[in-house]
Design a protein around this nucleic acid. Sequence first.
DNA 1: TTGTAGGCGTTATCAA
DNA 2: TTGATAACGCCTACAA
Lengths: 331, 331
Amino acid sequence: MATIYEVSKAAGVSLATVSRVINKNAAVSPKTREKVEQAMVELGYRPNTIAQSLASSKSNSVGVLVSELDSPFFGEMMSGIETELRSAGKQVIFAAGHNTEKVEKESIEFLLSRFCDALIIHIEQTPNDYLVELSKGKVPVYLINRYLEPLKQRCVYMNNELGGYRATKFAIDKGHKNIAYLCGPEYKDDAMERLKGYQRALEEAGIDYDESLIVKGDYSERSGSEQFSILYQRTQNFSALVCGNDEMASGAMKEARDLGLDIPRAISIIGFDNTSFAKYLYPQLTTIDNPVGEMGKMAAKLVLNEVYEQKHLVQHYFEPELVERSSVLTV
Amino acid sequence: MATIYEVSKAAGVSLATVSRVINKNAAVSPKTREKVEQAMVELGYRPNTIAQSLASSKSNSVGVLVSELDSPFFGEMMSGIETELRSAGKQVIFAAGHNTEKVEKESIEFLLSRFCDALIIHIEQTPNDYLVELSKGKVPVYLINRYLEPLKQRCVYMNNELGGYRATKFAIDKGHKNIAYLCGPEYKDDAMERLKGYQRALEEAGIDYDESLIVKGDYSERSGSEQFSILYQRTQNFSALVCGNDEMASGAMKEARDLGLDIPRAISIIGFDNTSFAKYLYPQLTTIDNPVGEMGKMAAKLVLNEVYEQKHLVQHYFEPELVERSSVLTV
DNA sequence: TTGTAGGCGTTATCAA
DNA sequence: TTGATAACGCCTACAA
């Protein structure tokens, strides 16, 4: 592999000049630039990114930490991040946190040990304090789906409360009055926010909040089935069910059908997140779109702006939109 | 950040000695080793991976090229690879080929430019010749789901023909005699192999192969719906449908239901791949498990063995197993 | 606008 | 078993 040195010899200039045309930062006369560029193509020169990193103490790589690599939710996010960063010539290193505080922290350490220029993080278990502390270090930390006041300039987040509200409002607008809610786990902020949105929509419509219509799962499909069964045994006095996420919605649908209930005729169901499989369900699931791919791109742009001095338009706050399909009946 | 130099001073030894204890390759007396190790923890020393790479011309990173980052299929594969490589302290760089020869080649270039020590590739568009040529270069190339004779020591693949056979055989064993087949695109080898398996199972059971029972989609859900509709208009003389993958199976199920056909009572359906959403479908899809996560791990182990001189047990060939769920009726 | 030279943090070759 | 010291390929003041 040709080095910068060989190029400089071939072009009859100095090392420094070649470096300048590579980095396009300092002024080089058009003539010399051309000579150098020609020498580069002739020699098939490709800069050694590792040497560049060592000399500039920039690795041109950004670390991304997600809970799981094999999840439709994170898949979309990773895809958004990779697209954006790749087209800027930056490398992305993905690591999985597997929903354990221990592994999450190890992954952060790993990413740091690879000298990432920035970290993009979307995880659940690691406490806020740790992240705030971490971001005081050299490497800037960007958060997706978490809002931390001290890091707000580096957060990209969606209004979960509004999502819960819109889902519920949609059911109300379709004529439903008795609307149950299948909530996510209590320790997840987004789950609690979505529930609040449900409550606000009811209140606004003058519908009393009824504890007996609320069940709590853990975001898994299985818990969706279980909780639906519990709910249905407790009361059959509801015509619609709003779910904290699509997995639980899927589980609920399955259980409902096993109980002989037609969807949406007997019960309307609304999900949350618009994960890729939502459209594979039958009937296709009406749900709230979580623009996680967009948020990934946005986090990438923040990094590009702040770490690599580029200039992208930037937005921290996202709103979820309802996606109407076929799982809700007008009554 | 402490450097090796500071450690050497603190421990009262030379640079070289510190390097030796880091790399555990050369002999160091227990006493000096201890001194050095203590100095390392006291200074909180962490080797600079970039400098290591530059000096050793090993980046300790392996590039992985898949078609899409946001797909349940590749998600599993990536997860398998990452788990295996991470625990060996190697870094993984994922890139997406987006099913275009152009992007695939660019991605390979990108990965190469990052000095990956090896490439793990699972893509569709890039021709075999190119890959063979590529693997003559310095960087070893490992292939998942492709068998190329000249690269067979670096291939990890599954018997697709056997998968098609087992799917069809299962339907036959359940008493079905008129079995349709929804085939994947012709330019994909695995699709053609699966079809062959279907044919072999029929032949073995003494059932005539009937062209009119074959339709061809492109592996997408939409094509599954379309092709089912075409098939059903052409003939209703089948009680089971074997599909080239789960997406098409899902589409077919949807279309069948829209036509008023109950699954599995009117029509039994079998998928292929056992993608994560197969169990979200209703009824849950009986399908052929594609051990793509295992194959990812295996490719990673091959790399570990050949590139990083480790010793893992290795296997190139995988067989697909049938996963029975609820979409097939016994007749 | 261009060149010189020191430095980035390791590894690896030779001697000792 | 240990220590000097020259790479590794590039960036970046500083000088010219």
